[in-house]
């Protein structure tokens, strides 16, 4: 048994300790956000945050995660009430097939928590581990900037 804090909730999971987090999230915890893309850490479709850091969940065995905090797409918001980064991607219609976007959003969340106002180069650099095949990149970059604006506006408002 491994104990994880998943999207703020303490979860006890029974998968074997060598199971990559991706399969624990998808199959045991029934969360759809993280996607299988390559299993090799090359495409970023499985990206989630562990203690705030973006990681490839396809290569992160459960035994590394006892007591640690995992955030997935589901932790950022819901269909009815999307989080700021999700809302920005929706507003910019930054998806075609959408399969890669969960990873893009998680990587963006990590970027904006570290650097609230990134320029184009910084966005491109941060998203470099993430692949998109539909060619939605222009909109993704726009969505990241959109999210940065809404997050700083929100931060300003709570001051």
């Amino acid at each position: 048994m491994t104990h994880l804090i998943v999207n703020g909730e303490l979860r006890t999971v029974s998968s074997d300790p060598d199971t990559p987090l991706l399969y624990v999230l998808r199959d045991e915890l029934e969360l759809n956000g993280a996607k299988f893309g390559c299993g090799l850490g090359q495409c970023g479709a499985c990206t989630v945050l562990i203690d705030g850091q973006p990681v490839f969940s396809c290569l992160t065995p459960l035994l590394l995660l006892e007591g640690r905090e995992v955030r997935t797409l589901e932790g950022l918001g819901t269909l009815e009430n999307p989080g700021p980064v999700q809302a920005a991607f929706i507003a910019e219609q930054a998806a075609q097939c959408g399969y890669c976007i969960a990873g893009m959003i998680m990587r963006t969340q990590a970027l904006l928590e570290r650097s609230p106002n990134p320029d184009d180069d910084e966005i491109r650099g941060a998203l470099e581990p993430q692949l998109c095949r539909c060619g939605t990149h222009m909109r993704i970059i726009r969505a990241v900037k959109h999210a940065a604006r809404s997050l700083s506006a929100a931060a300003e408002a709570t001051k």
Binding site: Q42, I50, Q53, V55, L64, E128, P129
Partner: peptide
């Protein structure tokens, strides 16, 4: 890790900074 090369076939290895603690 070894990040992807920009357009050339080349080794890619993921970094484990986010998933491995210092003790690990």
């Amino acid at each position: 890790g070894v990040p992807a090369s920009d357009g050339n076939p080349a080794l890619i290895m993921p970094g484990f900074a986010g998933s491995m603690t210092n003790a690990t």
